[in-house]
């Protein structure tokens, strides 16, 4: 079955990232499942499944130190209250793009579409947008200049 990088991100990478952020908020920041649900715009049962690792498991990102650094940054921002829902969307989107560009989803992509294996496919590295993780800062040149 063919699946574009964006479809792969929507189906597997973003749920995995949301799951890691939820787990970080529950385990390290000691927030309740309801509070995490409010912060992430999810239902409380969904947070419970994420926190238990029963959702967002299509791709394994927990052992990627660079991805965990982004997850900790997002969770920290949410817990401190200096990252809002819009900011979180931007960072999740940028983190998903990062995962694609680093080739972390290539194995999963090859399982979904076996024709990609050994084909030299580099679609995710070449067709995705450049990193925009700090977009809110870049969109405010005065903030950068201050």
């Amino acid at each position: 079955m063919q699946e574009t990088p964006q479809e792969l991100a929507a189906r597997a990478i973003l749920p995995a990232l949301r799951g890691l952020v939820a787990r970080e908020l529950v385990r390290d920041h000691k927030l309740t499942h309801q509070k995490v649900a409010d912060l992430l715009g999810l239902s409380r049962p969904a947070v419970t499944l994420y926190a238990r690792g029963q959702r967002g498991r299509a791709i394994e990102l927990r052992r990627r130190a660079d991805v965990l650094m982004m997850v900790q940054d997002m969770a920290g921002g949410l817990a401190r209250g200096d990252l809002d829902a819009r900011g979180l969307m931007g960072k999740l989107d940028a983190a998903a793009t990062y995962v694609l560009r680093k080739g972390y989803a290539c194995e999963l992509h090859g399982q979904i579409d076996p024709e990609l294996r050994g084909s030299g496919c580099d679609l995710c590295m070449t067709a995705t947008l450049p990193c925009n993780y700090f977009h809110p800062w870049r969109s405010d040149p005065h903030e950068v200049a201050r």
Binding site: D66, M69, M70, D73, A94, Y98, R101, K102, P130, C131, Y133, F134
Partner: peptide, 13 residues
């Protein structure tokens, strides 16, 4: 060797 946004996050840390 790090790609964006890792250099900035490492700097922040």
């Amino acid at each position: 060797e790090d790609a964006c946004p890792i250099p900035v996050l490492r700097t922040k840390e």
